[in-house]
């Protein structure tokens, strides 16, 4: 399967528009560009810019052409494009192997490839056909996809507010007015659940993906619990940002998959879903088991399990580790988050 692109970074001169801004050309959009931008945006592929130009002149032209609003963290400066890509990836908290870069200049593409070989570099000639390429075709386009740009824009506002905030970090978290909601997945959540298993790598305990049909079967089975987590704060929603897939065995609960979107890193909410799940099982006097499989980027999740008192009970040849936690008293949910929803755990197990 081709690596799906999460963010496309575009050059401007002779890529987005015909002509060179610096030379005072009359600029117009290249054929198909407006449609491609709208379509990729609808699919939840983020758009940004790496262009060597004067930032205010370029912004004015992009506004005149009616496409300025599509772009997150546009990098319009005189620096290297490889540095611009690194800045965008850092700002969006995404790995560069999910980035594509499109530019008409072979030199610029070579410069980016040299520093970031994992970035897919494309010639501007292919712009109009991007939506047909497999890398730009997510398996599902969910309501979350179409909102993704706005969700990231809210994140960027939050980052700004965080940088401006002086005082203890807990006070900042408190000022966000966060609300964390846990609820059992319903049919409308399944596409998003699938999307989360495919898109999430860092905060993912096994990396195992489940097809829509598998998730649907799991959802209907009395032996499984599929929980979705949502977060919102005073800026707006983060969307559905986490899930837990739990097998309800008579003697214990078994967390087959636990994941969180990296968009909520630093919000102090990472362990809420796990703790509430443990609490529900422990209340029944049941221990909880969990699968963990290393993917090179998810050490954080192993550490999360270990700090939640999970201990290894079995290690399989294929790299799967099974851990177990015996009932103990759990810490309360941090007071800067309001917990909503939950799940009627008496109905399970």
């Amino acid at each position: 399967m081709a690596n799906k692109i999460k963010c496309l970074v575009c050059d401007l001169d002779n890529t987005i528009w015909q002509g060179t801004l610096l030379e005072g050309d009359e600029l117009h959009l290249r054929p198909g560009v407006a449609e491609v931008l709208a379509e990729l945006d609808r699919r939840g592929i983020l758009l940004s810019i790496a262009s060597r130009n004067d930032p205010s002149d370029a912004q004015r032209e992009l506004q005149r052409l009616g496409i300025w609003h599509y772009f997150l963290l546009p990098q319009i400066n005189w620096g290297n494009k490889s540095e611009s890509l690194a800045a965008i990836a850092k700002g969006l908290n995404l790995a560069l192997d999910s980035f594509a870069f499109i530019d008409d200049q072979p030199y610029e593409r070579a410069e980016v490839t040299h520093t970031h070989p994992q970035v897919l570099c494309l010639d501007a000639d292919s712009f109009a056909t991007l939506p047909e390429q497999p890398e730009f075709n997510p398996e599902f386009v969910t309501s979350e996809s179409a909102q993704r740009r706005q969700l990231y824009q809210l994140d960027l506002q939050r980052q700004g507010a965080e940088e401006d905030f002086s005082g203890p970090r807990e006070d900042f978290l408190r000022s966000l007015n966060m609300e964390f909601t846990i609820h059992p997945a319903n049919r409308e959540d399944l596409q998003r659940a699938f999307e989360l298993t495919v898109r999430t790598h860092q905060l993912n305990t096994t990396g195992k993906t489940y097809s829509y049909e598998e998730l649907e079967a799991i959802c209907q089975s009395p032996n499984y619990l599929l929980l979705m987590a949502e977060l919102s704060d005073r800026f707006g929603p983060y969307g559905k940002i986490g899930l837990a897939l739990v097998e309800l065995c008579p003697e214990y609960w078994h967390i087959r998959l636990l994941l969180m979107s990296c968009r909520v890193v630093g919000r102090g909410v990472g362990t809420i879903l796990l703790h509430r799940l443990l609490e529900a099982a422990f209340r029944k006097g049941l221990p909880v088991r969990a699968d963990f499989k290393e993917n090179g980027r998810n050490a954080m999740m192993l550490t999360t399990y270990r700090f939640a008192k999970f201990r290894t009970i079995q290690r399989d040849d294929d790299g799967m580790t099974i851990m177990e936690a015996q009932p103990y008293g759990l810490p309360p949910t941090p007071d800067y988050v309001r917990l909503r929803g939950g799940f009627a755990e008496e109905n399970y197990g």
Binding site: P168, R169, E170, F172, L173, V265, G266, G268, G270, A299, M300, T303
Partner: peptide, 15 residues
């Protein structure tokens, strides 16, 4: 960590 000096993602790096 609780005081929020350091975000917990860095906990792994610190360990």
């Amino acid at each position: 960590f609780a005081g929020g000096f350091v975000n917990s993602l860095y906990l792994v790096q610190m360990l």
